[in-house]
Design a binder for these strands. Structure first.
Length: 566
RNA sequence: CGGGGCGUGGCUCAGCCUGGCUAGAGCGCCUGGUUCGGGACCAGGAGGUCGGUGGUUCGAAUCCACUCGCCCCGACCA
């Protein structure tokens, strides 16, 4: 296409509202404009790039036998009420009413609608398995949209849904998606990792996330460089490590001591001269309306996701000061497990086998020493702690890293949640009604673009992988008012088109510096500069990433680009 | 929803504290000219209800109240 005819509103300066690199560059490079918080218009360049991404997604989905559909974004409340998500999703679901006062919502995913179609039409095991997908706009009333296109209220998602007769079928469908996702992200040029994920409110047994490491991300992932173990921090497990100081031996009885004004783990550690790992941390939580005492090693953090799963209430809350006072007779700085009878005690596995530790005495300004789990109090042991940087890998004994990431894809085994609640049944070979098992799988289309920009940019702009760049090559006559240069550039442009290369001819009447800056900014991977060397039949082929410039014969440039694009 | 910050030509910002000239600068834009290998130069020009409403005042971009919007941190999060 011809640059002088296009609308590519590049900006010299960074708009003030943008913080993360992808947001700044998308605005500066004229890809997007904001309409409202978390709502963006995708201009020509963004749309071109997104179309390339969706095309790759489409090809790889089709390759695993998935069938593309397009479902309504506008949904009646009924189907969401049936699945229970009308209430569960709360304010995150965009809800509206039509003129007759009927409740509607804008879909955030499409389990309900897909299941509605399936239950109306699927009758026999002979029709299974099915893989259905769509690439469609989703809506979420995010409490806080942020970071440009990374967290928005309206975005494009590829979502697919599988229906199988049994767990083995689901395993196969899941694996197909796993492989397809790898091919998609590979083709998009992303560096990513696949991590075990917490399946959260969606239920289901297994779940993986496809993550791109980036400071702009919001998810934390624990990775082991040694063995490749990788898991979302919500789910990650680390091997137990010995405490900083060995426990005192012997069968000692708890013994109260005065700790005036020492409330935090750190204060008590300083006061006693014992490391934090010699203490127990007591947290009082209210799950399902009932109090629970959670015990952790002093230097450990609670994983809210893990507790939510175990307590079977993701909406749990910390107890309030007055509740704690009523239940324990002491304030939060002096709580402990000894003598607690009015609530269950959950303890982290790191406390299993420990002896003679420090804990609160349930008496203000007092603690107990020589508290031994299992002897001085009874607890149910679970993995409750959140893994931290530097913890020991549970698989290989290496050291775990914690990385900030952007989630670009998520696959999970739904199980029977929707097929059950919405009444999807088919007849099996024995003529018996059975409930198919489902999976669901998502890819954030814009997030692929954002993640690529976060991964690949420099001070001058984006360095997009060729597969998702809006153009593959830009042809820049240094001086377009030089007839020979303009003509040669046009010739090269035509040849590129003939070779099937997505080419952009920068015929603008601008100084070369302006054109170079713009080309760098919008992230086109290759540039052919037609300049003074044209006199000797040469043009320059420039690699956006390495900045390496090679002089090549005018006639050979298009073929060379073609070759490099492979 | 809690905390913080910011709203002044298309963009980046100054002016506000301490009210008073015609509301400014750089970039961008338009016209003409000179230029042409990393965001040129000269000359001329267009463009602003200072987010909105109300108040205080002889007088408000500036002070006060309310309100709307945007950004950041937290809470929240298929």
């Amino acid at each position: 296409m011809i640059w002088s005819k296009l609308f590519i509103p590049t900006l010299r300066e960074n708009p003030a509202e943008a913080e993360v690199p992808s947001h700044q560059l998308l605005l500066r490079a004229g890809y997007i404009r904001q309409l409202s918080a978390g709502i963006y218009s995708y201009l020509f360049l963004a749309q071109r790039s997104l179309l390339k991404i969706t095309q790759i997604v489409r090809q790889e989905m089709d390759a695993i036998g998935a069938q593309e559909m397009l479902l309504p974004a506008l949904n009646p409340a009924e189907v969401w009420q049936e699945s229970g998500r009308w209430d569960i999703m709360g304010d995150n679901l965009f809800k509206l009413k039509d003129r007759f006062g009927r409740d509607l919502c804008l879909g955030m995913t499409h389990e309900e609608v897909m299941t509605t179609i399936a239950r109306g039409e699927l009758r026999s095991y002979k029709q299974l398995p099915q893989i259905w997908y769509q690439i469609q706009t989703k809506f979420r009333d995010e409490p806080r949209p942020k970071s440009g296109l990374l967290r928005v209220r309206q975005f494009i998602m590829k979502d697919s849904y599988t229906f199988d007769m049994d767990a083995a079928g689901l395993d196969a469908a899941y694996d197909k998606h796993y492989q397809a996702y790898c091919r998609i992200f590979d083709r998009c040029g992303l560096e990513y990792m696949v991590v075990e994920a917490h399946s959260g409110a969606m239920g289901g047994s297994q779940s993986h996330e496809f993550m791109v490491a980036s400071d702009a991300g919001e998810d934390f992932v624990a990775v082991c460089p040694g063995c490749g173990y990788a898991a979302n921090l919500e789910k990650a497990v680390a091997a137990p490590q010995p405490p900083a100081l060995a426990d005192p031996e012997g069968d000692r009885a708890p013994e109260e001591f005065h700790t005036p004004g020492r409330k935090t783990i750190a204060e008590v550690a300083e006061f006693t001269g014992l490391p934090e790992s010699s203490q127990m941390k007591s947290l009082v939580l209210v799950a399902d309306g009932k109090p629970v005492l959670v015990m952790l090693r002093g230097d450990h953090q609670l994983s809210e996701a893990k507790f939510g799963m175990i307590a079977n209430d993701p909406e749990f809350r910390p107890a309030q000061a007055d509740e704690i006072q009523a239940w324990f007779g002491a304030a939060a700085g002096s709580l402990g497990p000894v003598g607690v009878k009015n609530m269950p005690i959950l303890a982290d596995r790191a406390l299993e086998g420990r002896r003679n530790m420090i804990a609160g005495a349930n008496k203000d300004d007092h603690h107990l020493r020589h508290v031994t789990p299992g002897e001085d109090f009874r607890a149910e042991f679970h993995d409750l702690r959140q893994v931290a940087e530097g913890d020991v890998c549970g698989k290989c004994g290496g050291t775990l890293d914690v990385r900030k990431t952007v989630e670009v894809g998520h696959i999970f085994k739904l199980g029977y949640k929707y097929s059950e609640s919405m009444g999807l049944r088919v007849l099996n070979a024995d003529g018996k009604e059975v409930t198919p098992i489902m999976g669901s799988y998502g890819i954030g289309i814009e997030r692929i673009l954002c993640a690529a920009i976060e991964l690949f940019h420099d001070k001058d702009g984006m360095i997009l992988p060729a597969a998702i760049a809006p153009f593959q090559v830009v042809i820049t006559p240094a001086n377009n008012s030089d007839g020979a240069q303009a003509e040669a550039a046009r010739g090269i442009y035509q040849q590129c088109l003939a070779l099937g290369i997505d080419a952009l001819l920068d015929d603008r009447d601008e100084r070369p510096g302006v054109k170079f800056k713009d080309a760098d900014l919008i992230g086109v991977p290759w540039r052919i500069v037609v300049g003074k060397k044209l006199a000797s039949g040469m043009v320059e082929l420039v690699d956006r990433k390495t900045r390496q410039a090679t002089d090549v014969a005018v006639g050979e440039a298009p073929a060379l680009v073609k070759q490099r694009l492979r």
